[in-house]
Design a protein around this nucleic acid. Structure first.
Lengths: 186, 186
DNA sequence: AAAGTTAGGTAACGAACGTTATTTAAAAAG
DNA sequence: CTTTTTAAATAACGTTCGTTACCTAACTTT
C-alpha cells in the first residue's frame, strides 16, 4: 500500500555526519540536510523525532570513528605510543569531531572518559611496557604524557599550528623519552 | 537641544563583555544586552554600527585582559614559569575567553601570535635563564613546554579536568624539570 | 515659553531556524 | 481497476535573531 521509502535513515545520518565533519554542529540544520539529500525536510523527521535525536545519532557515529582510531593504535606494535599518535591523528583528520568530543561541553558528551582518573587500566599497562614503572607510578606519569598529547591534538584540531606527521612523531617520542629520563633521575 | 545620553558606550561594552564571560559569543545578542541594560536595543546601535562591531570591541577587551595576565607573569620573579602559570590561570579564571582566543577559529583572532615561531624573543630569553640553553636550543625546547602548558590550559578551560592551583604548579614545575634533565642527558 | 535636535522606546521587518498541517501521488491489496 | 495507505513535497507557523522606521519626550537654545 505505501509508496516505497526513498530516503533511508542511514542516508540522512550519513549526510548529517558529513556536514558536521566539515562545519561542526553549528553548520547543521534540517534544510541543509534536505538540500544535500535533494529532498524536503520530511524524510528527516520520518526517521528522527527531532533534530536533537539526529544530533545524538551523529554524535554516536562520531564517537565510533574516534574509537576506531584508538583501537587501531591500541592493537599495533608499541601500543602506548601508537595510541597517542592515533589520538593526534584523529584530531588532524577530523578536527571538527575532535573539537566536539574534547574541546567543548555539549549536552552530548557527558561521559567523557579520557581523563587520567578513569582511563582504562589497559593504557596504563601498555605504558608500563615502555617505562618499566610500577602501576601506580605509571598512572601518575601517564597524566603528563596525556596532557602533552592532548596539547598537540588541540593545536592541530584548531589549526593553530600545522605540524607534519613526522614533526608530531618526533615531538611526542622525544618528549616522552625526556620525561622518562627526567622522572627516573630523581 | 538633545536629551542627555543615558547609556554610555562603555556600559554597553561592559555588559556585553560580562555576558560573553559567562556564555561565550553564542550567548550574546542585542536583546539580552538591552535587558541587562534595562533599556531597548537602541542605545547599542547608537554606539556601535552593528553587532559585528560590538563583538570586535568585546574581543579587544578580552584580549586586553589576557595581556594583563601575561604581563603580570612576565614581570615577576621566575618569569618563564610565571608566564606559563599565568596562561593557565587565565584559562581557569576566564574559560570562555580562553576558548575564544585559543580554542576556536573565529574571524576575530586572525593575529594569534602565541605560536612558537613568532613567539616573542623575550619569552625565549626568559626561558634561557631557567635552562641555560643556547637561544636556538631554547627555542626548540620552548615548543615542548608551551605544548604542555597549552594542554593543561585547554583541559582547565573546558572543565574536562579540575586541577587545583597546587596541582597545576606541581605538574608544570615537575614536567619542565624532567624535560630539562632528559634534554641535557642526550 | 517656544522650537528644534536627538536619545531612547515601540514595534515592525526580513531572514533563518525547528517543526508541522495539508496536499499529492506512488504502489500494494482487493 | 479501485481503494487504501503512507512517503514525500509544499507551504505555513512560531521563534529568535539583527536591524530599522517611526514615535515620544527630554533638554538646550533662543
Amino acid at each position: 500500500m505505501p509508496p516505497r521509502t526513498i530516503f533511508e535513515k542511514e542516508q540522512v545520518l550519513n549526510i548529517a555526519y558529513n556536514i558536521v565533519e566539515k562545519e561542526g554542529f553549528e553548520g547543521l540544520n534540517a534544510r541543509k540536510i534536505a538540500k544535500a539529500l535533494n529532498a524536503s525536510v520530511h524524510p528527516i523527521f520520518k526517521h528522527f523525532k527531532d533534530m536533537e535525536e539526529l544530533k545524538k545519532a551523529v554524535y554516536e557515529k562520531i564517537y565510533a570513528k574516534y574509537q576506531e582510531y584508538m583501537l587501531k593504535g591500541a592493537t599495533e606494535e608499541n601500543a602506548y605510543k601508537k595510541m597517542g599518535l592515533s589520538y593526534i591523528k584523529f584530531a588532524k583528520d577530523y578536527p571538527e569531531f575532535f573539537k566536539i568530543i574534547f574541546m567543548q561541553k555539549t549536552n552530548l558528551n557527558a561521559e567523557n572518559f579520557i581523563m587520567a582518573d578513569n582511563v582504562g587500566d589497559d593504557v596504563i599497562r601498555k605504558g608500563q611496557i615502555l617505562t618499566g614503572l610500577s602501576f601506580e607510578e605509571q598512572k601518575k606519569f601517564h597524566v603528563k604524557v596525556w596532557i602533552f598529547t592532548h596539547g598537540i591534538a588541540c593545536l592541530v584540531a584548531t589549526n593553530t599550528v600545522e605540524f607534519s606527521d613526522e614533526e608530531i612523531e618526533g615531538l611526542l617520542t622525544e618528549s616522552v623519552k625526556q620525561l622518562i629520563i627526567g622522572y627516573k633521575s630523581k
